[in-house]
Design a protein around this nucleic acid. Structure first.
Lengths: 415, 415
DNA sequence: CTGAAAGCGCTTACAG
DNA sequence: CTGAAAGCGCTTACAG
């Protein structure tokens, strides 16, 4: 292969020499082909082909002051320990047999909630000519990951509460940032308090002190800077769902199975419930709705067990005609408690969830729920980020995405 | 905020000035802290903190001749058209109601098959100090994506047949490459022919002409270069599964529901079936196994419909005591055909699949199947890639990962 | 339409 | 242990 360097990648200089032009022209052909004479362009392209030239993204990023990469930070778990993954077998032909009649062999480490988000963001980014770099916040070293990411990208979309606001502030520096609605999925991560208005107003996200990176320990800045954000209409979705339930449920009282008090998602959904039920009792834990329906509230924690236990306890005093759960997992727990209590769903009592997780499709009966537009969330986050990058000084935007109600068997016939 | 530049990100020079050291020392503190005196190190770290310094990854990549990024190329679909995503509503409070009693509202664009792969690769990459950049091959512009990716990463893992080998060769240039086992999921993508031995030998993957980038059109190089590869033990998994089935199935003939002839996965699984059934007839489409079991083969195409139709047609002549399908989707189709034909599963006939897709858990009866270690596939691909990057001249490696058999109700009681 | 030249922000031998 | 200097491979005004 005469004249072709085997070991080293060709550079603009190699291409320029081969095409007998300057490196400026090579660059122009690659970036703004219309600015170059057709004949020259073809010579250069031929040289590019021949040499198998691939532009070095680092050099591009450095010279052009943009990386062409967007970052996405999502919650995530660490890998299962190697010993769990590998078992003892590595050789071919050793096959493990697993009794999975209960379906429990599904990977517990899987976090499906954000897969769609990633897909949406990824597609939108490439469509706009950006690559997407995804990082799942590890329990260990989130700051490291953040920091690392911040230096690699032109902008960062972060799922709310993936990292502490403090970290966002100091790590990100001047990197454009978009906050993406949090998640209601209970995931051991605990702290679900954060940037959304706890009253369900879902106000703009605030990052305090984003103005100064000088003092990392002093009092938070009095004037918070507002970041762009994309959220999901928790409140409107729950309102619509509950209005539907009130129209179709059997006569009798309603039980609202709430989420944890410190979750903004839970707060938004609770507000939607109150919007729909109306009447007195707003703010308290029970009352009579505007249509005369009597209702009460039980406290869940977004987990299956929490939902199960709360409903089981409630059943000892009363049998509801509807259980409105703040999320799917607790609704699934409620379903189990009702079954154990001999309550027919949806005949005697209808049940609804919120989130649209896979399990909601496969429960018996299948769960009526509100699906969050995770794909769109990703797309919008990228769009917002791009806007912010294009105009760093623009006023901050907050998008509230509409949701879908998925009608399934758990809320009975659809009159 | 006196002395703090608001608009421009601080560089090593700013840090050096603040800490009263040279930029070389700043760099050293960040990369090899042990090589710097403790006092100096602390001064520099303080300056880094104060200025909110974030290293520029492009500059690092350029100077250090490595990007610290690994690429992963997976098959993928484009985003649904905007009109499909957005509907007419954007305002809050507009909620769509969707009748999902049949569970069909699941996102058809979703490709779950690779989500685990990505997770495994992502986690492994970060663990090793690399970031991961994922690109889903778009129908349009795969080459563009590939090319773009190649310039951004230190190495690339590509799912087999995501892009044509030709493209791999010319686009990737000198970027280290690892091939990851293909997929058997029928996905409209069609061409499933490729790098695995069609006889089930699953030999090393060959990329022809990887030696020269000079001639993009001439005859393929006579000596193919072998790329590293990670594969899944299709053959061993199917063999183990079938041995189990032979032990538990009701008396009667076996039907092997094969995959498309041009699929290497299908070939590997078919080979595993023949290993297990033994006896004569190897290579033909039926015969008598070594234990006297009579068997025949029907051709499927990895789709539900293909499996359904093939089995429905078969039922007109014979009722099998076991249907071994080459993948889950066709097994699910087979299940439906058997139900329509009034054949009791697993009482009269047992059924098995291959892949471990979600739907296999939720079918009635739940499907016994072989689960591919997708998470591990991602982890191993990254490990192999890192090894290759560390030693470009090393002989190529091929890993064959063991699989799990998931025993569920479709193959009856487990004696 | 094209070229010469500066510069993007780091890392890394090489001296000392 | 620390600093001066070269250089990584591009892009982008600025001239012409």
């Amino acid at each position: 292969m005469p004249g072709v360097p085997e070991s080293k990648s060709p550079t603009v200089y190699d291409v320029a020499r081969q095409a007998e032009v300057s490196i400026a022209t090579v660059s122009r052909v690659l970036r703004r082909p219309d600015k170059v004479a057709a004949a020259t362009r073809e010579r250069v392209m031929a040289a590019v082909q021949q040499l198998g030239y691939v532009p070095n993204a680092s050099a591009r990023g450095l010279a052009g002051r943009r990386t062409g990469v967007l970052g996405l930070l999502i919650p995530g778990h660490d890998l299962p320990a190697t010993s769990d993954r590998e078992d003892a077998r590595t050789a071919t032909g050793e096959v493990a047999f697993i009794d999975d009649r209960d379906g429990s062999a599904a990977d517990p480490y899987r976090n499906r909630y954000f897969e769609q988000l990633v897909r949406g963001a990824e597609a939108a980014a490439w469509r706009e000519g950006y690559a997407l770099m995804v990082a799942a916040g590890r329990d260990m070293g989130r700051e490291v990951v953040m920091h690392d990411l911040a230096g690699r990208v032109d902008g960062l979309a972060a799922v709310s509460r993936t990292v502490p606001d403090e970290l966002l502030r100091t790590s990100i520096g001047r990197t454009p940032l978009v906050l993406v609605a949090g998640h209601s999925t209970a995931d051991g991560d605990g702290a679900d308090g954060g940037s959304e208005g706890a009253d369900g107003t879902e106000g703009a996200a605030e990052i305090d002190g984003a103005d100064g990176a000088v003092d990392g320990v002093g009092p938070r800045g009095a004037v918070g800077t507002t970041a762009d954000a994309v959220r999901v209409d928790n409140r409107g979705g729950m309102r619509a769902l509950v209005e539907h339930v009130l129209a179709v449920k059997p006569p009798g009282p309603v039980l609202y199975l709430a989420g944890p008090p410190d979750s903004p998602d839970a707060a938004g959904r609770a507000a939607g419930f109150r919007d729909a039920i109306g009447g007195d009792g707003a703010g308290s834990d029970g009352g009579t709705g505007r249509d005369g329906t009597s209702w009460s509230e039980a406290l869940g924690d977004f987990t299956w067990q929490g939902g199960h236990d709360a409903v089981a306890a409630h059943l000892e005093q009363d049998t509801p005609a509807a259980v409105i759960a703040a999320n799917d997992q607790s609704a699934l727990g409620a379903l189990a408690a009702l079954r154990e209590g001999g309550v027919d769903v949806p005949g005697t009592c209808v049940v609804t969830g919120f989130d649209g997780i896979d399990e909601s499709r496969w429960s018996t009966p299948a769960l009526t729920t509100v699906r969050q537009p995770m794909l769109d969330l990703g797309v919008r986050a990228v769009e917002l980020l791009l806007r912010r990058i294009a105009d760093p000084g623009a006023p901050s935007t907050e998008l509230l995405l509409p949701v879908d109600v998925l009608l399934r068997h758990s809320c009975g016939p659809h009159r």
